[in-house]
Nucleic acid binder design. Structure first.
Length: 474
DNA sequence: TGGGGTTAT
DNA sequence: ATAACCC
């Protein structure tokens, strides 16, 4: 029962990529010899290197539509919102249709394109949460990113599987899916071993998604969220890829522009361009001091770390949503009556959703976009607390809350827009947020002692000293 | 550019 | 309340 020794990094793959190893992530960190079993696979001190998977569904809305209507399968399919094809299946992509393509251009490129309307997100949202819940069965640490992506921290699960592994099974350990950069696997390298186990769990996740939900997707396994996300997209539909540490520099250098780095958005990319920074290498080698002065210390330090493939941000469990919103965009809305009608529609849908959730929103917000030739992306908003007498009626028939809530929203609207002057809106959105779990959070608040059903029947009826700790919300 | 979401300031 | 980021 002799075990393999984790020796020094004897030819860690034999590729040139090993030169530029990730700082703080030295390959094959010397594992001390321990007697018996596989105890040496458990790190003895400090934070263990993580194993993260990024799961990314293939053209999610189109998949949901093909499940709803199987006759669409095999045909080029686009999902339309207003005049845009927001996503499309791979049949359509082969014929030249791209995401966020104008409907006219798409039809011109591909006259056989079948379009379905995807403005109502209900079925997509429901399927999205089914995916997240399925992944949460593997590990509770699941972070959603949009409707079609999830990060899962597999570190603990991998550790548990390694502890169950017999030493003779170690030599038979294999990867599931692709290895990025076709890098050589070193079974003496504990980091390689952990990532391989991660790749096997990722394959099980994709299998479960396919068997239980009928969905296909990609997965990327790596030591942090940035790298997992980047590597998940390398082999594209319905495949998975694992990144071994020695190839992380190859991966990030494969990006053509800093804008392709998740975390560097439109605004930051523009500011970087003004500094002459366009490639990842430019950002890596740019003066930290100057970058901090230009972008602020927080953004500068974070994105410069990203440029080296370093990302210590945790996988933060998303849990239930923080907010519910519904929006509608249009060419023109210019009268109060129109605004009120649109708001009523948005609110009706929202109240149904919030009712199903069970929690109660304590804040309501109205968001508008006004027409203007430039600055076309800018929105304005006003928010206020929802009066407590309305909150309490929220679970039941929402007919009696819709009128007062529309009243509140119209006040918020008139606070933003002078209705005595002409106006031109191109978007209205209503958001319910500041969600609280019904009643359970009431204990310790003033409401608890002022609500007869709680303070007299479920307790002794006496007021206690806890009064002084209570405070009003909103 | 749609119809959503999140966190930081 | 806005601005940035993500899809």
């Amino acid at each position: 029962m002799e075990q393999r020794r984790a020796g020094p990094a004897e030819e860690a793959g034999g590729d040139e990529a090993a030169e530029a190893g990730e700082a703080g992530c030295s390959p094959a960190a010397a594992a001390p010899e321990e007697p018996g079993g596989l105890g040496r696979l458990v790190p003895e001190g400090g934070p263990p290197a993580r194993v993260i998977v990024h799961v990314d569904l293939d053209c999610f809305y189109a998949q949901v539509e093909m499940i709803s209507n199987p006759e669409l399968k095999g045909k080029p399919l686009g999902v339309q919102q207003k005049y845009l094809v927001v996503t499309c299946n791979y049949e359509a992509r082969k014929l030249g249709v791209k995401k966020l393509m104008n409907v006219r251009d798409a039809k011109e490129k591909c006259p056989q394109l079948v379009l379905v309307n995807g403005e109502d997100l209900t079925r997509y949202r429901e399927m999205s949460y089914k995916v997240t819940e399925l992944l949460e069965e593997f590990s509770p640490i699941v972070e959603r990113l949009g409707f079609d992506e999830n990060f899962v921290d597999l570190t603990e699960m991998v550790e548990k599987r390694l502890q169950q592994l017999q030493s003779d099974e170690l030599s038979a350990l294999t990867v599931s899916g692709h290895v990025y950069n076709n890098q050589y696997i070193n079974l003496h390298d504990i980091l390689h071993i952990r990532l391989l186990v991660g790749s096997q769990i990722a394959a099980e996740m994709r299998e479960a998604m396919n068997n239980q939900l009928g969905l296909t997707g990609c997965a990327g396994v790596a030591s942090n969220k940035l790298l997992a996300k980047l590597v998940s997209g390398v082999f594209k539909p319905n495949q998975q890829t694992v990144l071994l540490p020695e190839s992380s520099q190859v991966l990030i250098q494969s990006l053509n522009h800093v804008k392709e780095m998740p975390g560097i958005g439109y605004k930051t990319a523009k500011r970087l361009e003004a500094l002459g920074i366009s490639s990842v290498h430019d950002l890596q080698t740019f003066s930290s001091k100057i970058l901090e002065k230009e972008l602020g210390i927080s953004v500068a330090q974070r994105i410069q770390k990203l440029s080296f493939g370093e990302d210590n941000s945790p996988v933060t469990p998303s849990g239930p949503p923080q907010s519910f919103s519904e929006e509608d965009s249009f060419k023109k809305c210019s009268s109060e009556v129109e605004v009120k009608n649109k708001i009523e529609e948005l609110l009706a849908s929202l109240l149904n959703r919030v009712c199903q959730d069970g929690r109660k929103p304590h804040t309501i917000r109205l968001i508008i976009r006004q027409y203007s030739s430039e600055n076309h992306c800018s929105r304005e908003s006003r928010q206020c607390p929802i009066p407590s007498h309305i909150i309490q009626k929220l679970g039941t028939g929402n007919c009696d809350v819709i009128t007062p809530m529309v009243g509140i929203l119209m006040k918020l609207f008139r606070n933003m827009v002078n209705v005595k002057m002409p106006f031109h809106l191109t978007l209205l959105s209503v958001c319910l947020c500041n969600l609280k779990a019904l009643n359970t959070s009431k204990k310790g608040t003033i409401d608890y002692y002022l609500t007869p059903s709680l303070s007299t029947t479920s307790r002794s009826g006496k007021r206690s000293f806890k009064m002084k700790d209570s405070h009003m919300e909103d």
